[in-house]
Design a protein around this nucleic acid. Structure first.
Lengths: 240, 240
DNA sequence: CCACTCAGGTGGTCGGACCACTACGCATCG
DNA sequence: CGATGCGTAGTGGTCCGACCACCTGAGTGG
């Protein structure tokens, strides 16, 4: 069947590195509810003792879970479990966008097109007056300046406000990663040099109209077309 | 002449922890193309010396990038950059599914419904004979057993084969995380106790028919309905 | 009653030591 | 001559102990 290895403590699969085991164990503690969101963990030294490993290895495990958005270390205070909200856990999604290039950029944009068109459709049905005002604020601000940096900033906020109105925080967090600053800046650099300003402006206006009219289908089409334009442009860039 | 500037050009901005800086620098090296996918990094000791930090801190940085799927450490050999493919970077996506609970599970299922319905529609248009055979293999195997464990396994493979036929690796990797074993096992436990076997079988058959007919719209509807069923069930479970 | 001080505890960093494993060249054997 | 085996150098993995930087809260003084 299996082994003849005596287990020192309760559960020790004895697989992989010591650090990896520590990562899994802490993750399991949270998954099983033994550690609530926001809870404070024992000290690094205590944790290391409990799991029978050195503090160095335990620190590596904690660092790993920190970059994953699961834990949060506060210098001088302690280690805490994050709220485990979508934003916390999906922050690493931005890394994917930053490190992707070539064909994968197109794939990412395709995913964004699918999700954002649906999110925009949902927003058209659910958006409130206040949320719509927020959207309009960034729309007008975007059209009132020529600074590319500022345009990009308001463009991001424009879409972010719309997606937030869709009411699905997880989807919003994913799209946030897919629209991260460095990601868009890379694509926009060349895209806007082809006189895409005016087209972008029209597309944004179309999206806005659909939101005002609370027309999900029109919103979906407008958003899909908007992202699709960039997607198609990028596709041609890869086939010189 | 270096400090008091918002951002340095070459040297470190002296922000955050030393380890975090190391993480960013390595990430930047890869992003700027100074480290190609599959390339071998200098040794931990050399890297630590280059960045002027201790080996312990460097190890934490490496470990962090390892769990993110950016680096891969081979004991006794060296540290290498992964191929940076969708699967490598999106493996951490499974953590989100594993640690999510309550309302966020519904949100995740909603995202999956949107993506998988589109992926299934794409698959209907593009699927080849070989790929279709693979899908059918798992479909029949799923209907030929009563072992819940085996059913779940073939169910996963069934959808995986379909999504793979859509031709978007990034989307496939995301859906893989959203359909991870532990995630589905948690949901299915209760779902299948309500006689959902037969319904699931019919829904799978409908998806298969649409694939055979190369009918994207039917495939989209069938897939959306399939995931939506589970989604709705889960929604009711949260409102007792 | 409030503000300040300061000591203890915590995460952050460092350097060194040793172990486990891999890779590669060299000597050996067929 | 080629294939095999072995040994060694180099790599990541682990551990230890020390010190630093920072936060917290109890105690002190006004």
């Amino acid at each position: 069947m299996d082994e003849s290895l005596p287990q020192g403590t309760t559960t020790a699969p004895q697989k992989g590195t010591v650090t990896q085991r520590a990562i899994d164990q802490i993750k399991a503690m949270i998954g099983e509810g033994r550690l609530e969101p926001g809870a404070r963990l024992p000290t690094e030294r205590d944790l290391a003792t409990q799991l029978g490993i050195s503090r160095s290895s335990m620190r590596e495990a904690i660092r790993a879970l920190t970059v994953l958005g699961v834990l949060e270390a506060r210098h001088g205070s302690g280690i805490y479990v994050t709220q485990l909200e979508a934003g916390d856990l999906l922050e690493t999604f931005g890394v994917v966008a930053d490190l992707s290039r070539g064909p994968r950029l197109v794939e990412l944009l395709e995913v964004r097109r699918i999700l954002e068109s649906t999110a925009t459709a949902l927003a058209a049905a659910r958006i409130s007056a206040d949320q719509l005002a927020e959207v309009e604020k960034h729309l007008t601000a975007m059209n009132a300046t020529d600074d590319p940096e500022e345009i990009l900033s308001h463009d991001l906020a424009f879409h972010r406000a719309i997606v937030a109105s869709a009411g699905n925080d997880t989807m919003a967090a994913i799209l946030e990663g897919l629209s991260s600053r460095t990601f868009r800046a890379r694509v926009w650099r060349g895209y806007q040099e082809e006189g895409a300003f005016e087209r972008t402006r029209r597309e944004h206006a179309a999206i806005h109209r659909a939101l005002v009219a609370h027309d999900p289908e029109a919103a979906r089409a407008a958003a899909a077309s908007h992202v699709g334009e960039v997607e198609q442009w990028l596709r041609t860039q890869l086939q010189p």
